[in-house]
């Protein structure tokens, strides 16, 4: 761990919904330039962790703290966290019929990166390049946000937003699920370009080691029933994929 201030620090986080505790004491530190991965079986609390970091209003934090660059996020609404640089690539991106992709991207960049950036010719160029690299056809600009997108198209569109919004902390919740092999490579390249050799960081939630082969995470954490029960290097991902999660219970 570097001596610098951590990018993200999660301390003994307990959170739940309607009185049911889902996260039961999460501790996690991500340093600048680092990529971490979270794995864990269905229902272990991965998406909940992402939602709580992003500020989903349905979840109550009972204990602990989430700190981005020395500042607690807990009192902030989701949109304020976004402006502080938190980005979430959703496991299930939401459709907004009638809201055009181009319009939405411009507005989002304006609110997070500022009006000037959204208006600059630089932005258009960046958008065109990013769309090309992600294999998103130009015609998507006139479509409605996630409306009728295929599973893989939704995931590519999430990454397009990540590239344009240039977050400090990018959380990717199963962005690799539903992507084809080329898609996984493109997304990994996007993540590497956005995080490696920068002050930003990423948290990649996944069930598969393939994406992690491309991004080579600094740490892999295993979430079990709302707690991180094991952390290790990239080799842990391969071990989990081979052996499943059953053996962890015994340890």
């Amino acid at each position: 761990m570097s001596e610098k201030m951590p990018l993200l620090e999660i301390n003994d986080l307990h959170a739940g919904i309607d009185g049911n505790e889902i996260l039961k004491g999460i501790n996690l530190i991500i340093g600048p330039g680092e990529i971490h991965a979270i794995m864990g079986r269905n229902g272990s609390g991965k998406t909940t962790t992402a939602n709580v970091i992003m500020g989903h209003p349905d979840f109550d934090v009972e204990k602990g703290d989430v700190i981005l660059e020395g500042e607690s996020l807990l009192e902030m609404e989701a949109w304020e966290r976004a402006r502080k640089g938190v980005f979430l690539s959703f496991q299930y991106p939401q459709a907004v019929p009638g809201l055009q992709v181009g319009n939405f991207l411009r507005k989002s960049v304006a609110s997070i990166r500022g009006e000037d950036e959204a208006k600059s010719s630089n932005f258009r160029e960046k958008l065109a390049n990013a769309m090309e690299s992600l294999d998103i056809p130009r015609s998507f600009m006139a479509r409605y946000v996630n409306d009728g997108f295929s599973g893989g198209e939704k995931k590519r569109f999430e990454i397009l937003q990540m590239i344009l919004l240039r977050p400090r902390l990018a959380i990717l919740d199963e962005t690799d699920s539903g992507l084809d092999i080329d898609g996984i490579r493109t997304v990994s390249e996007g993540v590497n370009a956005a995080i490696r050799d920068t002050d930003s960081g990423a948290l990649i939630i996944t069930h598969y080691s393939r994406i992690l082969e491309h991004v080579q995470p600094d740490r892999v954490h295993v979430l079990l029933d709302g707690r991180i029960v094991l952390s290790g290097g990239p080799e842990l991902a391969t071990k989990l994929e081979e052996r499943g999660y059953e053996w962890l219970k015994e340890e």
Partner: peptide, 28 residues
């Protein structure tokens, strides 16, 4: 839905802005 609002809010839009985006989309 709350999920729709949360999605838009996570892109830097306040709750009212997000709602207006959904409503204007509905009227599109």
């Amino acid at each position: 839905s709350d999920e729709q609002l949360f999605y838009l809010m996570s892109r830097g839009h306040s709750e009212n802005e997000s709602l207006a985006m959904i409503v204007n989309g509905f009227f599109e």
